[in-house]
Simulated assay, not measured.
Amino acid sequence: MTTAEPWASVEDVAKRLGVAKDSVYRWIEARKLPAHRIGRLWKFKLSEVDEWVRAGGAQEDD
């Protein structure tokens, strides 16, 4: 039996990626970062975040 992947917070994602929480919120707003709204909170699956980064989602658009 596999254990379900736990949900991660904005703080967890910011720490994992080495960025400010503001960057995480900006990436959510731009509808790029895979996030799930649970009540008033944003939650993440770290496997989805890792895949997003590998796919180039964290690259600057400038």
Results as ranks from 00 to 15, higher is better:
Val10Pro: 01
Thr3Tyr: 14
Pro6Ile: 00
Ser47Thr: 14
Phe44Glu: 06
Trp42Lys: 02
Ala4Glu: 10
Gly39Val: 10
Pro34His: 06
Lys21Glu: 13
Lys45Gln: 15
Pro6Asn: 05
Phe44Ile: 00
His36Val: 09
Trp7Tyr: 15
Lys15Glu: 15
Ala20Asp: 11
Met1Cys: 10
Asp50Gly: 07
Pro6Tyr: 03
Ser9Leu: 06
Glu5Gly: 06
Tyr25Ala: 00
Ala58Gly: 05
Ser47Arg: 14
Gly39Cys: 10
Arg54Phe: 06
Ala20Ile: 13
Pro6Val: 12
Lys45Asp: 08
Arg26Cys: 06
Lys45Cys: 03
Ile28Gly: 02
Trp42Met: 11
Gly39His: 06
Trp42Leu: 01
Ser47Val: 11
Thr3Asp: 12
Gln59Asn: 13
Thr2Val: 09
Trp7Ser: 00
Thr2His: 09
Glu60Pro: 07
Glu29Thr: 10
Ser23Leu: 02
Trp52Gln: 07
Trp52Glu: 06
Asp22Cys: 07
Arg40Trp: 13
Lys15Leu: 09
Gln59Pro: 00
Gly18Asn: 04
Arg37Lys: 15
Pro34Val: 06
Val53Glu: 14
Ala35Lys: 07
Glu51Thr: 15
Trp52Arg: 11
Gly18Ala: 00
Arg54Met: 06
His36Asp: 08
Arg37Thr: 06
Ser9Tyr: 05
Leu41Val: 11
Asp61Met: 11
Met1His: 01
Val24Met: 03
Trp27Leu: 08
Glu29Phe: 00
Ile38Val: 15
Thr3Ile: 12
Ala35Ser: 14
Ile28Pro: 04
Trp27Tyr: 12
Ile38Lys: 13
Asp12Lys: 04
Val49Tyr: 09
Arg40Met: 10
Trp27His: 09
Lys45Ser: 08
Val13Ser: 01
Ala30Gly: 05
Lys43Gly: 09
Ile38Gly: 08
Ala58Cys: 10
Ala14Asn: 08
Pro34Asp: 11
Lys15Met: 01
Glu29Ser: 09
Asp22His: 03
Glu11Asp: 13
Val10Gln: 02
Trp27Val: 04
Asp22Tyr: 00
Val19His: 03
Leu17Pro: 04
Arg31Tyr: 10
